[in-house]
Design a protein around this nucleic acid. Structure first.
Lengths: 254, 254
DNA sequence: CAATGCTGTTCAGCATTGCCGACCAACTTC
DNA sequence: GAAGTTGGTCGGCAATGCTGAACAGCATTG
């Protein structure tokens, strides 16, 4: 395979750098962080700014991500077939379970949330579409790691940080979890990522029976679990939703 | 000002092209649409793919936008100061009014929605964050056009399409609408964009009293209006919210 | 069933392109 | 006011990436 275009990979690195740090970054910081000459970095930033991918604070001169990225990210969702098919099923699942519902796909050693339905009550919640969740500690991540070979490799490679004392970190133990997930067809997360929160998820397959994503719900452990186990009613709802979406995508049910 | 980087502007054009068409595009289509040699287009696409900005359907070989854009768009929202400050106020406004609330900023001859709170009932709604609304027919757009000189120019330049029979299209009449908006400090949209929907919006100013965005609500014309006029209670709520956000941004209230 | 149009992809040669690093101007901070 | 910053610019060199043609895999077509 021929080499990639230098200026493009550098521009992508700039965007990722800007996405990483919370605050705005100056030209010199960008150049130094990426090991580029100031002139080079400036050329890239100037072009990205003209295209709307980057904005410059007129007073401080520092740079941040631009609005065009939001627009393009939204367009991505529009063409995303899995998401489009899953919309109504996710809604039903949220209604039936009373919990927040997430749909995620594998992306860059993590789970990218492509759809999120709020828990159907009036509590204040923040939308997590576009956010990344860890592969090794969430129900969505475990499902992907168990059924998608690529995700499996990435999950084993990545450093599995312990978010809580219940997080499974050790390789052998984690592999065991994935085997269980494969055999029973769904995964759970009992306060392994966030204290007090539990989640359940099941895999979504496409027409060629390849795993393309996962659907799951998350909620307070007191509501989701019973005697240390996930309520079987919720497990059934999640698996039903996953099957329905898969069928919508053309996967035959048998 | 020195010239922009060729390959970058071309890559941006590719992304915008992919964002425009609903369906996936083939290499040849991309190359032809942009007037590039096939080899050139392929190099750009290949690099964008490696960076995750573009994905290729393995079976058809066609290209579509990639997941990384969603992630970056999300990061954009994280850094967006206006949005961060406005979150709670938008929530309160939705609660008080019982309608969906939008926050928009000027972007590329339109209004980019950076925040959207669902109408507080159980109806099925689609999140419009990242979507573009027209400048000349929505309340948000009119507010921006009235108070932001840049938006004003763009609104006058752009071709104002008539979405409904009530849309104000003609230049003089539109200018009149903007003057009214300026004098009373808020704008409305009575079925000028979508049949049956009305909206109200007010401007948000930053610490230097420059207009940086707008906040508004949208709902069924029967609920929002009364005897052909927007309910004054809703107008007051929207303007209060706009003032609160502006104050949060450091704009002095007098 | 082969011919013919597609598709995406590769490659080598050439000159355009954009990278580099020094330089400049405008602000802070001593 | 000097010595740091900062972001921004510019000329010259060569590495870079663009071009256009040729390739391989697939469908549809004659």
């Amino acid at each position: 395979m021929p080499g990639p275009i230098q200026s493009l990979t550098r521009a992508a690195a700039v965007l990722r750098l800007l996405a990483g740090g919370e605050r705005r970054l100056g030209l010199s910081e960008v150049a130094a962080s990426l090991g580029l000459a100031k002139g080079t970095a400036h050329g890239i930033l100037r072009t990205l700014q003209q295209e709307g991918f980057v904005e410059q604070d007129t007073v401080s001169g520092k740079y941040q991500l631009g609005a065009e990225l939001l627009r393009l990210g939204n367009s991505y969702l529009d063409v995303h077939e899995l998401r489009a098919r899953a919309l109504v099923w996710a809604d039903d699942l949220a209604r039936a379970s009373g919990e927040s519902v997430y749909i995620g796909v594998l992306h860059h050693k993590g789970v990218l949330i492509v759809h999120h339905v709020f828990r159907p009550d009036d509590s204040r919640q923040v939308l997590e579409v576009g956010a990344m969740h860890p592969l090794h500690s969430t129900a969505l991540g475990k499902v992907l790691s168990a059924f998608d070979p690529v995700a499996h490799n990435e999950a084993m490679d990545v450093e599995r940080t312990a978010f809580t004392h219940r997080t499974v970190v050790e390789a052998d133990a984690f592999e065991k979890v994935l085997e269980d997930t494969r055999s029973r067809g769904w995964a759970s997360d009992m306060e392994e990522t966030w204290e007090g929160l539990a989640s359940v998820a099941a895999p979504i397959h496409d027409r060629r029976r390849m795993p393309v994503g996962a659907v799951g719900l998350t909620g307070a452990v007191e509501r989701v679990c019973e005697e240390g186990e996930v309520r079987s009613r919720l497990v059934a709802s999640v698996r039903d939703a996953a099957r329905s979406i898969s069928r919508d995508l053309g996967s035959s049910p048998f």
